[in-house]
Amino acid sequence: MKILSMIIFSVREAILRGTLIFYFAVGNLIILFVALAVNASPDGSSIVVLGNPIPAKSLMGVSPVDFILIQLQRSSASAIMFLGIFAIAGIIPSMLEKGTAELFLSKPLSRTTLFLSRAIGSTVAIGLNILYFAVAIWLIFGVKIGVWHWGFLLSALMVVVAFAFYYSVVALVSLVTRSQALAIMLGFLFWFLAGALESRQAGLYNLWSNDIYRRTLDVIYYVTPQVSGMLQNATRLIGMNPYDRMLGPQAVSDFSIMPFVFSLLSASAIYALASWYFSRQDY
């Protein structure tokens, strides 16, 4: 009950933030647009977008339905990764403000429970937004076109998990600095770093041929949450990711569980470190 109270409170606090309300509003507009714009052709062989039939031939190597769903999934995932951090980077610092920290810390909950409930609540708030959008789109494609794309729903779940792992870094920074602004800045820095590390073979490796430098990049890649890798894999759950070829000839284009496994270990370690730190601080 105590944990649930804290989670519900955190969800409530997060969804009332302007950023998430904005995301929710824009998401609804997109859902409405898709609902009105996408239809099946009369013979059911192709889809019609804004009255224009899209031929069944593949677009960038994928089917038209997959292509549209991939675009929607990538756009919504990128938007939520960006806006979500704005929305919830302040959740932990707000709990640690003078006058508020005392109220929460004087209750019969361990600090680890308190911190993790807060992090879970924040992630749930983001997750609800992602899933709301995904389920709505999934229903539209199912009802109007007859394509019940389970991979699309699974990819939304994967995005939620990727966000939870990404948030571990932001949560740790916000806990240590007690600053929303710093948490947002360092969160975005990590986001760009994660993207650069994911495609390091085509990018960062070429900056310096030194082997130690390359091994260092590899170590950083494996000890931090592989958010970019997870998002690419989330796209692969919908269909062949047409953007894989941009990562270079060595890029893996099949779905892989490894980014999830490494990210799970890494995020768990970061959450454990944050809990340990939190349990030793004076407020």
């Binding site: 009950m1 105590k2 649930l4 109270s5 804290m6 519900i8 409170f9 409530r12 606090e13 009332l16 707000s94 403000e97 003078k98 006058g99 508020t100 005392e102 109220l103 929460f104 209750k107 019969p108 909950l109």
Partner: peptide
């Protein structure tokens, strides 16, 4: 100088902190 979440009502605040007491 305690500070409560400003988006809650008085009753909601007590329900929150009561919940944290189990």
């Amino acid at each position: 100088n305690h500070r409560y979440p400003p988006f809650l009502t008085g009753l909601q605040t007590l329900l929150l902190f009561g919940g944290l007491h189990g």
